[in-house]
Amino acid sequence: MKKIMLAGEPMGLFIAKEEGPLEAVSTFSAAVAGAEFNVAVGLSRLGHEVGYLTKLGNDPLGKRIVRLMEENAIATDLLSWTDDRPTGFMLKGKAKKGDPDIFYFRKNSAASTISREDIDKIDFSKYGILHITGILPALSETARDASFYLIQKAKENRTMISFDPNIRPQLWPNRETMVSIMNRIAEQSDYFLPGVKEAEIMMQSSSPEAIAEYYLSRGVKNVIVKIGKDGAYAANGKESFTCPTYQEERIVDTVGAGDGFAAGILSAVNEGLSLIDAVLRGNAIGTMQLQSEGDNEGLPTRVKLNAFMRTHALKKTGGGK
């Protein structure tokens, strides 16, 4: 197996220890967050070699991120530092039900200065898969240009491209730009992993079958649409099916579930497993993360993943093709 490359922005994460509006919370616990960071952690815990392309501020949060990368066996050779911009961070509330309040401090962050020069240093021969989300191209025009350059270099080196749109409208200047850029990246991917609501924003349909057909007709090789409690719908031109997800015991925090799903898909692809086995693994890890507090605490080791899939039942679904 080759290494898997992630590209994006890790951030400091401060999680409220008490319920209530963020401005009233007195105590927070510190961690690290970021969609690509979560995927990197998930892959590393399953035994895959991972590199993370990012840029950090030369500050305590940047140093904390590197420490946690090293603790999770995530390679640091693709990251760079800047003294001119800070590392981004976020505040996350605590909620009994539903999604917690989240507030980002990432404008003009270090990661927003990622450029072509950072990508020219990469030896792509080491990497079999590049996973990117819609966050990096949203950070700045420089990061957007770097995103397309990164995809170009990956294609030139026959590195597979995985794309999770991970839509964050607040990071974009307007909806039209967001949708255009997202679709341009999606159409260049080998694996496209949208949530059904994200795909509806991007191509105006909430039908998993229509979503898959739309992107397959535009050159995407594999489309896997996350459909919540019903699991995921996958298609690649040769097969299409609805894959049920696993029954959860309780839902603690929805943040990071999609990143766990991506880690499951990418690890299975890197191991040469079938599409159905990849989606089953993605559903399992997504469910495990749903039952844990924090953005990546529920991402399992190989032993825990195997035990979960062996002992937990699949939910009933309407079926597929």
Rank of each mutant, 00 (worst) to 15 (best):
G260T: 08
G286D: 04
I265Y: 04
A262P: 08
A262I: 07
G256T: 01
E293G: 06
N270K: 01
L275K: 04
V252C: 01
G294K: 05
A257V: 05
N270W: 02
G258I: 06
L280F: 07
G264A: 11
C243P: 00
G286P: 00
E271H: 13
T287C: 13
L290E: 02
S274A: 13
A268I: 04
R250W: 05
C243Q: 14
A262R: 04
A268P: 01
D253G: 05
A263V: 11
Y246C: 04
N270L: 03
T245F: 03
Q291N: 03
R281T: 15
Q289M: 05
Y246G: 00
I251D: 04
A284Q: 08
I251T: 15
I276F: 08
Q289A: 14
L273I: 06
T245V: 11
N283L: 10
G264L: 10
G294I: 05
G282C: 09
V255L: 12
A263Y: 01
A284Y: 08
N296Q: 10
N270V: 07
Q289R: 06
P244K: 04
V269K: 09
G298Y: 01
C243R: 01
G260A: 10
A278K: 02
E293D: 11
G298R: 01
T245I: 11
Q291T: 10
L275E: 00
R281I: 07
L266E: 07
A262C: 15
L275P: 01
G298W: 00
E293H: 10
L275Q: 02
G264E: 05
C243S: 13
L275N: 00
E248D: 11
L290A: 04
I251L: 07
N270Q: 10
Q247W: 07
G294V: 03
N270R: 00
P244Y: 09
G264M: 07
I285F: 11
S274Y: 08
V252D: 03
D277W: 05
G256C: 02
E297H: 14
E248I: 13
I276P: 03
A268D: 09
T242M: 13
Q247A: 15
I251A: 06
N270P: 01
L280Y: 03
C243H: 09
S292M: 10
E248T: 14
Q247T: 15
S267L: 13
D295A: 13
G260S: 09
A262H: 12
V252M: 02
Q291P: 01
N296D: 09
N296L: 02
L266K: 03
V279A: 12
G298F: 02
T287Q: 00
G264Q: 04
D277G: 04
Q289P: 00
D277Y: 07
D253T: 06
T254K: 09
E271D: 15
E249L: 04
M288V: 14
G256K: 00
E293N: 10
T254R: 12
T254Q: 12
A262V: 15
S267T: 15
P244G: 08
G286H: 02
N283Y: 06
E271N: 15
A284F: 07
R281F: 11
E249H: 02
Y246V: 06
I251S: 04
M288I: 11
D259C: 13
S292C: 10
N296K: 07
G282D: 06
E249W: 00
G286W: 05
A278P: 07
T254E: 11
D295N: 06
E271T: 09
N283M: 12
A268G: 12
T242E: 11
